[in-house]
Design a protein around this nucleic acid. Structure first.
Lengths: 118, 118
DNA sequence: CGAATATTCAGCATTATGGCTGAATATCCT
DNA sequence: AGGATATTCAGCCATAATGCTGAATATTCG
């Protein structure tokens, strides 16, 4: 319970990617074949293992990682598909069609009512 | 002085994208032709204008926006090129070559010394 | 000039984050 | 069983991030 697409999905994914250590974890797991044990991951950082544990939880909560127990160790696997959420978001900016070209020139003369839009 | 590529560039950009309001600002400006006044942007949100001002500063510090004064109003323009930093990062995961396939199977049997690597 | 408009700057309070240390759990080995 | 190994859980603290309100600043208009 925590990854129903859209809504907070973006929130979780972008939030997870906001920390260098977490981005590093994803990259490391990826280049390691897609999976790594918690210990291997924790060993990459200078901070306490427990701190990494928390990062792993954030990544997992965002759906970017999943884990599976293997004996007494825990293997984390990267969920690449989840990253498409980011590329999808970026894709918006590719859509040159919807861009209402002109911008700056006709910018002044608007500025009217301050509506709300949560 | 604060956007020498790499190092903190990723930090700044991913950090800026971590907040929904800021992602919304980028999208809005983009679909508005690439530029919008501070007031127009602030009007999209339910929170105080000053709060938006801060978001705009974060985005600008990350190099995702730039501004220019136009009379008594300030026009913010989106710096799309800066977004390539994100797609570049995502591209790593496309490189199927470097992936050392196999993963899980040979995962146990490692777990050795905990080195540091800030 | 003086009022109105458009915006940012400053400082404050609250909440979120990230890192630490000390348990607690679950396996594995002998 | 008892100890070592692999990890997470809990709770604490310092710092960062967000949102708010009250100035302050620059520009335009009558």
């Amino acid at each position: 319970m925590a990854k129903r697409n859209s809504r907070d999905a973006y929130e979780a994914v972008f939030g997870a990617l906001a920390h260098a250590a977490r981005r590093r974890v994803l990259l490391a797991i990826f280049f390691n074949g897609g999976a790594m044990t918690a210990g291997e991951i924790a060993a990459m950082f200078a901070h306490a293992w427990q701190t990494t544990t928390r990062h792993l939880q954030v990544l997992e909560a965002a759906g970017l990682l999943s884990h599976e127990r293997q004996g007494r160790m825990r293997v984390y696997r990267i969920e690449q598909k989840r990253l498409t959420l980011v590329s999808d978001w970026l894709a918006h900016f590719q859509n040159a069609a919807k861009r209402r070209k002109g911008g700056i020139q006709n910018v002044r003369s608007k500025q009217a009512g301050r509506g709300e839009a949560a």
